[in-house]
Amino acid sequence: MFWQQVVNGLTLGSTYALIALGYTLIFGVLGIVNMAHGEVFMFGAFVGLLLVTTFQLNIFVAILGAMIVGCLLGVILEQAALRPLRRRSVSHLAPLISTIGVSIFLESLALRIFGPQAQAFPASVAGQLLSIGPLKISSVQILILAVSFGLMLILRFWLQKTRIGKSLRATAENIETANLLGVNTNKIIVMTVALASGLGAVAGVLVGLAFNAVEPTMGVTMGFKGLAVLIMGGLGNVTGAMFGGIILGIAEVFSVAYGSSSYRDAVAFGIIIIILLWRPQGLFGAQKGGH
């Protein structure tokens, strides 16, 4: 049972990590917690589902489609809720509220369009169950694990080595200086939000596949966990998001397996509080602490 629970924890954790990556990217560049990320994630899941069921498309095409819609949503989000706030000096609470507004809007929009019921992917795309010795793991879960690790590595490489990545980091460091240095910061910011939202949408499809349920409120529940991971790992830290997600996943699973399942959510948040007290900047955050 122990190893099966480890597998359960890893798969749950990797979905958390996948969502947290999107939060992290946006926070890293803009210093904003994008509360609407969970809803973009949910929209992506629905788009993927629609493409597979109504349009009978291949699941990989569907993932691509979800990614494109996610990017578009990201651009709209940036234009509507973030850009107007950036032009002025505002308190750091304003973007928080404005993205909460977007999240409420998107959730009720999804409720209108897709209906409140949970929907599932057809069994043919949901992937089979693999048995490795006594362990059972579904192929989608392996895919999720691979995708989130892959994305983490790609993102790290991209941020460190490429030109765009460098301008992105420059923007993250100081928008005004980056502007002076000839970086088109507006473009970079739009790109970051679009990229993060695209990633969120892909995560939505994958999580929808793994747990076989896509519904309008999934954004809130999963988004909440993503937020927790964001804090745990250290704001704006890609590696932190990855490991934070896995730690949270394993902690939750083990609190059920060896403790009492009714305290699961408290255990998860308890860990976050403890980590924050021990390292106020998060597990992988820079030494400075706080923001």
Binding site: M1, L12, E215, V253, V256, S260, S261
Partner: peptide
């Protein structure tokens, strides 16, 4: 136990 809107029950069911 679990909570409404949970989607992952593998830990409880493995147990």
């Amino acid at each position: 136990t679990f909570a409404d809107k949970d989607t992952d029950f593998s830990a409880q069911l493995t147990k």
